[in-house]
Amino acid sequence: DVEKRMGLIRRTTRYEDFADVDVAIEAVFEDMQLKKKIFTELDRVMKPGAILATNTSTLDINEIGRATKRPADVVGLHFFSPANVMRLLEIVRTDATANDVIATAFALAKKLRKIGVLSKVSYGFIGNRMMDPYAREAERLVLEGAEPAEVDGALEEFGMAMGILAVFDMAGVDVGVKVRRANPDQVPKDDPTFYRSSQVLFDQGWLGQKNGKGYYRYEAGSRERLRHEEAIKLLAEEGRKLGIAREEPISRQEIVERCIFAMINEGAKLLEEGVALRPGDIDVVYTSGYGFPRRRGGPMFYADQIGLDTVLAGLEKYAKGRLPRDFEPSKLLRELAEKGSTFAAWAEQQKG
């Protein structure tokens, strides 16, 4: 059966061989000019009505679509790595994507046994956009004095499948650095602490599991996380240089609240902006693709369970002495918290 299936795969280096396909999914690295060039070529050779999809995780699909003469046929199909294991598929609608293209994308997701979730175009779509403030706080906590194992340990105790710093080591510390270089408009110019930890490691050539050193140290052929003394010392020094190092120990509660509350707040912004249609969609993204503990239902469900007033109070507490904008509650979160309402109740109101 494996040989039969593998035999159905045909390799080519000619765009003309795409002339009769129904769906093409581009999956080159995150380079806008390269992607636009590919879409221009696919547009030239593919038949009318064919779907042109991109697997981009961060780039503006509206801009990619404008490189073609058929933007209505362009859609985002963001698979999660490893794609043969991860069930989540973000289906990203551009300003021009036709309804029949979206319907076909969901049908394809079902055929591939994926869980399709609709998103509008936004930097990072749903999953990666919410991951950004979550990981930002994790990296900042290391500069303030928490060790990587303490940060990851608190998040894993909360229920995350893997702590975010260990995730960076597994994926490659360089991946995030390169994404930020490709999206300079997403990097605040007035915040030297922003993802500074990964940059420090990258500058040392410590890329994670791929070369044995990152936030942790790894023995050859092993993925066991070992204490990386050099990295801990260097990151502590960087925190002191930036003036954010703390003398007192950082509690597990603070680690979890700063990371998870920042994630929830970004989710509220996505609902407010219409990037995500329902809080349940966000929860599906996070429990299916980001290792959020299913027993907690997803970040938005979890927020409802502990009370949005708790989340709001936490954001206001952690904003003190830090950049206020990083913890500025979304308008929707504040309104619901002050009314004693929930994201679930808000979603029901939207149906009417």
Rank of each mutant, 00 (worst) to 15 (best):
V117G: 00
G214Y: 04
A313S: 15
V45Y: 12
L207K: 11
I244S: 08
A337Q: 03
I250G: 04
L77T: 04
I64G: 01
D174Y: 02
E316Q: 15
V45C: 12
A344M: 09
A146V: 05
N211G: 12
R10W: 09
K110H: 13
K351I: 12
D283K: 01
A149M: 12
K351W: 12
G145F: 07
D281L: 01
E348L: 12
A146P: 02
N84Q: 15
K35N: 09
Q186V: 06
M130C: 12
L234E: 11
A67W: 04
D73W: 05
Q349L: 13
L312N: 00
R322S: 09
R70N: 10
G243I: 09
T193R: 05
G289M: 00
K351Q: 13
R113D: 11
V179T: 05
L108G: 02
G205W: 08
A161D: 09
I232C: 13
G65H: 02
T13H: 15
L59H: 02
R240N: 08
P148I: 01
R322V: 00
V167E: 02
E237G: 13
R11M: 13
G124W: 04
D281H: 06
G280Q: 06
I115F: 15
M160I: 07
V256P: 12
K37C: 07
L112D: 11
V275S: 02
V2P: 01
R10Q: 14
N99C: 07
M162G: 08
L333Q: 11
L59N: 01
K339I: 06
N99Q: 15
G314E: 02
K339D: 11
M86I: 00
E137S: 07
D304P: 08
R325T: 10
E150P: 08
K233H: 14
E238L: 03
E237T: 12
I64F: 04
D203G: 07
S251V: 06
A313W: 05
R44P: 04
G340M: 09
R196Y: 07
A135Q: 09
A146Q: 04
T310L: 03
Y215R: 00
A319E: 06
K320W: 08
F327I: 06
K120I: 00
R5E: 13
I244E: 06
A149L: 05
Y15F: 15
E147R: 15
K317D: 04
P192C: 10
F106L: 03
K110C: 05
S222G: 08
E16S: 15
A262M: 06
Y195P: 00
G176S: 07
K189W: 10
K241P: 05
G214F: 02
G172P: 01
F18V: 02
I260R: 08
L323T: 06
R87P: 03
V285M: 03
M131K: 11
S251R: 13
F29N: 14
T58I: 08
A313N: 14
F79T: 01
E335F: 03
K36Q: 14
K210F: 11
D203T: 09
L77G: 01
M6V: 11
F18M: 12
M170A: 10
